[in-house]
Design a protein around this nucleic acid. Structure first.
Lengths: 141, 141
DNA sequence: ACTGTTATTGCAAAAAGTTGCAATAAGGAA
DNA sequence: TTCCTTATTGCAACTTTTTGCAATAACAGT
């Protein structure tokens, strides 16, 4: 069973459908291996699938996010980028060169527990990006 | 010395200028006491100052953010909202009712230090919003 | 394989956010 | 107060993102 049909049965089990558009966007994100903006995804996908439209890209990304197949991240400009969902992680981005490292979600586990105890909320997810200066860019000041 | 002229001299000391537009937007955010979207800010400000335009609002918010007078936050839809800079804090937002509580930045201090040690980055700021279910909405499921 | 239900898409139009550039005005210096 | 420099604004055009609705197509059931 291929990777694509695994996704398909996952979705079908929840009453959704696998479509060529969703397959294509998953494939693009998968082979990119890094995060892409909706515009980049649209540009790439349009080549394969000329009838594709922007609203479909945005709705597909929302849909895949809600179903846990992709994950959104932010890079400081207020816009989202998306990447294939792998292990749960966050980003630490250099304000100068844009370089970044991943932060394992595990590192936030204790904080999560503290917040749940203090607030009474049950935490489900979070949007977390840290910004700073990478070791290289600290030297220039 | 009024609150406004205090801001003004702060900006002038850095080579920037205080303008009626900046004053107005600061005033709107200050009296709102909560976070507002650029669109809400524009709508409110336009009444006072009909010549104001959207680009000015966006650029002003960026400017005030860079100068530490306002702070951006996100509410899960990928768009920014802005609030007057008070003490540094983050948000914990209920996915069901939208209710929220503030999370003191102090709570993240230890995590910051751990991240700096582990990564070699020097952290300057972050975009952090936690999502979950508030105590009330946990009952309904 | 065919049929019916309805999730999903494309289209069109609107809303939100961005960019380049010439005109304006803040505020330091004379 | 007046002049000069240049940070900032408004305008116009553009890109990105969202929304409503009718047409399409996935797929469960026969």
């Amino acid at each position: 069973m291929s990777c694509g049909s695994l996704y398909a049965s996952e979705l079908r089990a929840r009453g959704y459908r696998m479509t060529p558009q969703r397959m294509l966007i998953l494939h693009i994100l998968h082979s990119a291996g890094t995060h892409l903006s909706p515009t980049e995804i649209f540009a790439t996908a349009k080549k394969e699938f000329p009838r594709l439209t922007e609203p479909t890209v945005y709705r597909t990304l929302d849909f895949l996010t809600e179903n846990g197949l992709v994950r959104p991240a932010h890079r400081g400009n207020g816009h989202h980028v998306y990447e294939i969902a792998r292990h749960e992680h966050h980003h630490l981005v250099c304000r100068v060169c844009g370089g970044e490292v991943e932060v394992e979600h595990k590192v936030l586990a204790k904080l999560y527990r503290e917040l749940e105890t203090a607030s009474g909320y049950r935490l489900t997810d979070s949007h977390v990006t840290f910004f700073g200066l990478c070791p290289g860019c600290q030297k220039g000041d």
